[in-house]
Design a protein around this nucleic acid. Structure first.
Length: 707
DNA sequence: GCGTATCGCGTTTTT
DNA sequence: CGCGATACGC
């Protein structure tokens, strides 16, 4: 039996870790070490002799699960490698493939993401002629969120519209029709969306008592992280799984519930004691992350919340700066302020990866990205578009998906649209013919093709015929696909294919780690890889607040805190949405350990292209002014990077790649003087700066001058 | 006239 | 990137 020590935990954490029987609800404030508690819980159970495969760890992202298992393994040796951990969706997927026949599903279903679901709904919407003459008809995005919202709340669409979207009452019939068509479309094409994965998992547990018994026996210790982000179905899955043994521990913070648009309901956490009447409640109230000034401010933000579990967070971390608020003139001034603040932090020795810029929506950072790029400052953007969500990635994945599921109409449609002279209408006609055929592959040869596309179409048929004969590993298939796709790709994205090419290369390196296509496709859908590229580089982080959840940084800058941006203008005044936006700000601010800034632009460009003065976010107005320091807007001279490099008496000149040999002295607008140490691969250059240490610069962007 | 290609502009948050 | 408006071609 492995040795295991837990005396570094506080008393409440220790109680949570060592309660091995009965349901436990852990209410944990931000920075209270809840991840640590879960890690220790896994380690403790293993040390107590619980077999690893009896432990199920459900987390919000797969990364979080992997991280926890890895840390637990380092506490007790390699035991936790057999612990099951992952997201609800990933585990549902595994189970449903195994038990598909019990539910009357083909085991070769494809999983579709949000964008796919919206695409299907849009297609159905236009083919049913909805929204044609009626301009008020909701957008595809709204429709999908309504359909999915009804499923997640386990109520009918009628009730949902009645209760939450009464302004859409006139469209009720159309929405119901749309819903039926959407369901039958998915069934015909053997597709499952995110909701189906959960709904079918629940169906399995309810309708198949033997399967439920087997799973309950298998997963004898269940742990759920971020429980406030679960929806009703997930809560019920947990209840059903734990029904026979009650060994379940859920951890969450009602103040950090920010996913209600996806069906999450933080009342779940309040209702846990109803689901499990003999539940033990444990509160983790000591904050180990932030300094006291930051904690005082974040407490003030959440103080105004309408509804919350009472908990008082305290910290023993002494000292620290007061958070700062900067009212910028406009977006550009805001971006420059942020850049300067980052520069100072880096100069003070804070590693770039310990600095995060957070914002409400993906596009709020566009201006800042421009400034950073022009300065040659390396950063990583999280949130917004994912690698596999871009069109060229979906193209490649479509071929693979068809190999596994030839009834996947969405993928057929993509493949057809790549051909010249084939548009949405023709693609849809072909797709409809294929999926209703007994053998789609045979039907493909028999499609009525018009003369103008015959050549391209024949190429496609030959390509698929060759591909299907291969019984090759994914990597070989990928290379085969690229033989066909590469020319198509260059024609389709003629303007920017070099940039996209890098994504394809990245996909190749990801695919080489897989032994079968099915799991590769599932993983890229359920857990899309970042566009970022290699990991663990020392890079500044730009992230939406949603994507920064669960992380922490030495320094955090929250930007775009202006009226209309934060809270988002669609959040109605004082409703549930409003409250969620407040919690979102709380999540953002609680990511900071030592330094925290708030900024907002005083001027924005709305759609009508006229600058408009905007006020500070109303949430900031609720904070007592003595809790933060207000910075005066400064008159700013144009930074060096925007001045054109000109030859001076000392003969400074702009560097070209050929000049940059190791040992060369250079000057950078941001980092000052330095010495070239090495010419790294792919247009990258390592420079040792006198004041800032070793940096890797992009030759394409960084403006270097020779000294 | 139907279907396809092109251009310009605005963008909530995501397993 | 995706949407709508507009232009072009069969």
């Amino acid at each position: 039996m492995p040795d295991y020590e837990y005396d570094t935990l506080n008393e409440a954490q220790r109680r949570a870790v060592t309660t091995t029987t009965g349901p436990v609800l852990v209410i944990a404030g931000a920075g209270s070490g809840k991840t640590r508690t879960l890690v220790h819980r896994v380690a403790y159970l293993l040390a107590e002799g619980v077999e690893p495969w009896h432990i199920l760890l459900l987390t919000f992202t797969r990364k979080a699960a992997q991280e926890m298992l890895w840390r637990a393994a380092s506490l007790v040796g390699n035991f936790s490698s057999q612990v099951t951990g992952g997201t609800f969706h990933a585990i549902a997927n595994n189970l449903l493939r195994r038990y598909a026949d019990l539910l009357g599903y083909p085991s070769s279903f494809s999983i579709i993401d949000q964008a796919d679901a919206e695409g299907i709904v849009n297609l159905l919407k236009s083919s049913l002629g909805l929204g044609r003459e009626n301009r008020q008809f909701p957008s595809k995005r709204t429709i999908v969120s309504i359909l999915s919202g009804a499923v997640n709340r386990s109520i009918s669409i009628e009730d949902l519209i009645d209760r939450h979207h009464s302004h859409l009452a006139e469209h009720l019939d159309d929405l119901l029709t749309l819903y039926q068509h959407y369901q039958s479309y998915k069934r015909q094409h053997a597709l499952m969306d995110y909701d189906d994965l959960l709904v079918n998992w629940r169906r399995l547990l309810i309708e198949q008592p033997e399967a439920r018994e087997a799973l309950s026996r298998r997963f004898a210790y269940i742990m759920v992280d971020e429980y406030q982000d679960t929806n009703l179905i997930q809560a019920e899955i947990v209840r059903l799984l734990a029904a026979s043994h009650n060994n379940v521990m859920v951890v969450g913070d009602d103040s950090q519930s920010i996913y209600s648009f996806r069906g999450a309901d933080f009342h779940n956490i309040m209702r846990f004691p109803e689901l499990f009447p003999d539940a033990t409640l444990i509160k983790l109230e000591e904050n180990y992350r932030s300094s006291q000034p930051i904690l005082s401010l974040t407490n003030a933000i959440i103080e105004a919340a309408a509804e919350k579990y009472a908990k008082t967070l305290f910290s023993r971390i002494e000292g620290g700066d007061k958070p700062k608020l900067y009212a910028a003139q406009d977006e550009r001034d805001e971006a420059l302020f942020v850049v300067e603040a980052i520069q100072k932090l880096v100069a003070d020795g804070v590693p770039a990866r310990e600095i995060a810029v957070l914002f409400r929506s993906g596009f709020h950072s566009f201006k800042l990205e421009l400034e950073l790029t022009s300065l040659g400052f390396d950063f990583e953007k999280r949130g917004g578009l994912k690698l596999t969500e871009s069109a060229h990635m979906k193209d490649v994945l479509a071929f693979l998906r068809l190999l596994v599921n030839p009834r996947d109409g969405l993928s057929w449609s993509r493949v057809f649209l790549q051909l010249d002279k084939i548009g949405p209408k023709t693609a849809q006609k072909f797709t409809a013919a294929l999926i209703s055929a007994a053998d789609p592959w045979q039907e493909l040869q028999a499609l009525p093709v018009s003369a103008s596309v015959r050549v391209g179409f024949a190429g496609l048929c030959r390509f698929f015929a060759g591909l299907r004969q291969e019984d090759a590993p994914p990597l070989a298939l990928y290379e085969k696909i690229l033989e066909y796709y590469q020319p198509v790709f260059q024609r389709l994205y003629a303007d920017d294919y070099p940039k996209r090419q890098k994504d394809l290369d990245q996909l190749k390196s990801i695919i080489s780690g897989y032994a079968d296509i099915q799991s590769f496709i599932d993983d890229t859908t359920l857990d899309p890889p970042d566009t970022g590229g290699s990991v663990n580089r020392d890079r500044l982080v730009l992230s939406t607040i949603h994507s920064a959840k669960g992380l922490e940084f030495d320094a955090v800058l929250v930007i775009g805190l202006a009226e209309g941006r934060f809270p988002h203008s669609a959040a109605g005044i004082m409703g549930a949405q409003w409250e969620e936006e407040r919690r979102l700000l709380y999540v953002a601010a609680t990511r900071a350990r030592k330094h925290l800034w708030f900024t907002y632009p005083g001027e924005l460009m709305p759609p009508d292209r006229m600058f408009k003065r905007v006020a500070m976010s109303p949430f900031l107005g609720e904070i007592p002014p003595h809790l933060y320091e207000r910075l005066r807007p400064r008159h700013r001279s144009i930074p060096a990077s925007f001045a054109r490099p000109v030859a001076t008496a000392t003969m400074i000149k702009a560097a070209t790649a050929a000049d940059l040999t190791p040992g060369r002295r250079v000057s950078h607008a941001f980092f000052g003087a330095g010495t070239v140490t090495a010419l790294a691969s792919e247009g990258r250059l390592d420079v040792h700066f006198d004041r800032h240490g070793l940096k890797t610069l992009h030759l394409d962007y960084a403006k270097l001058m020779l000294l």
